[in-house]
Nucleic acid binder design. Sequence first.
DNA 1: TTGAAAGCGCTAACAT
DNA 2: ATGTTAGCGCTTTCAA
Lengths: 344, 344
Amino acid sequence: MSERVTIEDVAALARVSIKTVSRVINEEPNVSPLTRDKVEKAIARLKFRPSRAAKSLASRKAFTVGLLYDNPCADYVANVQAGVLDECEARGYDLIVHPRSSPGYELAREVISLYQQGRFDGVILTPPLCDNQTILAALSDEGMPTTLIAPGTPVAGFPSVITDDDRASFDMTKYLLSLGHRRIAFVSGHPAHIAVQRRTTGFMRALLESGLTASAEMIVPGFNSFACGVNAGNRLLLQENPPTAIFAANDEMAAGVLSVAHHRGLNVPGDLSVVGFDDIPIATQSWPPLTTIVQPIKQMAKRATSLLLDIVSGNTPSLQDVVEEIPSSLVHRKSTAQPPIVRT
Amino acid sequence: MSERVTIEDVAALARVSIKTVSRVINEEPNVSPLTRDKVEKAIARLKFRPSRAAKSLASRKAFTVGLLYDNPCADYVANVQAGVLDECEARGYDLIVHPRSSPGYELAREVISLYQQGRFDGVILTPPLCDNQTILAALSDEGMPTTLIAPGTPVAGFPSVITDDDRASFDMTKYLLSLGHRRIAFVSGHPAHIAVQRRTTGFMRALLESGLTASAEMIVPGFNSFACGVNAGNRLLLQENPPTAIFAANDEMAAGVLSVAHHRGLNVPGDLSVVGFDDIPIATQSWPPLTTIVQPIKQMAKRATSLLLDIVSGNTPSLQDVVEEIPSSLVHRKSTAQPPIVRT
DNA sequence: TTGAAAGCGCTAACAT
DNA sequence: ATGTTAGCGCTTTCAA
């Protein structure tokens, strides 16, 4: 490997001081067009690339953000990463990912250790980590810049990006109702994922508003996984008076319900309508493709990153308690239809 | 934020020189147990964390590896990342991910630029990037340490980790044959992903070895996606004399075939056996769950990382042309059975 | 086994 | 608009 080209080489070739070169590469003002041009030519000729380590050391910034998650759904994670990377690349930052399965306290300690080593300037948390008070408190004590994606409830001091789970869920239920369904079941999501809990609320609210009540046997608990959907589906469909529509709090569980329906010889949507939430790939890959709610995860992640970078780059008035909402939307596919004629 | 604790603070408290502290934190030899103990106590007391930027600048290493991929399958990517991270964390390295959809030349330029900035010490490539000669040549010219996960063919100068696609595919076909199937169709994978092509070879080989020949209409091309599986399934099942078993070169396509089978009212595995390759989540989540081949992606990624770190940390004799193979294995689930009785 | 000195390649703070 | 001078917090090299 040849010797590294440094800012001094560029300065010498352009016959200016290193500070001027620094101004050019950082796009600072107060450089005459002529000088700028000379410097840029020298940079190009020498193929100069400023050393990230030197820049970090001198400026006391890592130009890197950390992404923390503890989510088994690869697709969710991929979307979050894509959104974060979009913003990072646009602003010259790097991303370090930190999936975690260790208990809360350990995670906080590890992350703080990395932060103290200057390995990143701040972090982005996704559910369920962003609902973990222990972790939040630890990061806050450390003064670590942090933003949250889809926290269950807004947390003072942590800028957040959320979506309208409750309203989307409400709309979906209303849609099912408008199709003529009256016995609608709901498979609720993971209790630790509070945002998902709000989907239950929206469901209830829509029922109530239509003068219906959710009977206890029509609400079954799940934990977000496909297997839970299978269990819930079996439980629901085995009842004497089974539902004509099943709304699962996420697509994985909806896919589980679908699989049970096939297994039992039910026609979807003829005999049973099934809907989900999230719009992960399985929603289009199952048969029939699922009517569901598109959660704009990638945009949420991008926005959360943008907020974080605003904070760490310091060009921002207090955005301590910013909570931005990006709407989810309903997408109609083939898993929904009118309920079958009631046989009395 | 309080002032940073530096190596000097530790040295002062322990009454040694900073070089000695450096020796302790880097676990270098030639430190007396007594001194080491003093230093360790001081580090603990002060909660000292060595600055990564300073370390990088002084040692001219980033302690970071880059992971390059251009693969739409979230699960594949998640597994690769998990394997790479495992190894990175164990050895104190960071990971920077670089998903890419830009044309080959651009990718190489971008990656080289990052490398020249010292943002990582080397990179790991996954298919189809690791089969791209343009990219490989560019990285090689730059002298950038690189290892490959599942390249189509070994490339001189690039240590690689592969699996035995051909043999696994051969075994799977033999299994189908042993069940009694004689009309077995194959949905081939993306032409740019050479390792996947070898799955076709294994299939053919097994057929030949059993004295059968693969008729042209029994081999249909696909491009790895669910939608391709749907197309292939339709094409295959519409034939006058349809296959009794369909082997898809990956699980996503197998799931597509499954969906078509359901749609057409076929019973799987009663009327039709379907098998895939990879063992992604959809393989267990489809109905019935797929008999498939488990590709040890995570271990492959871990090993590829280990090779790369050996190279960049320089404690290795030439491993220029190392090619390690990690075996894939067949997993039996519910999508396979004997063929239906032939109605003449 | 230990230490002193000289950088690594930038930015910050202050001149001019 | 441009330059000068100190570091940033480590590792490296060489000496003791």
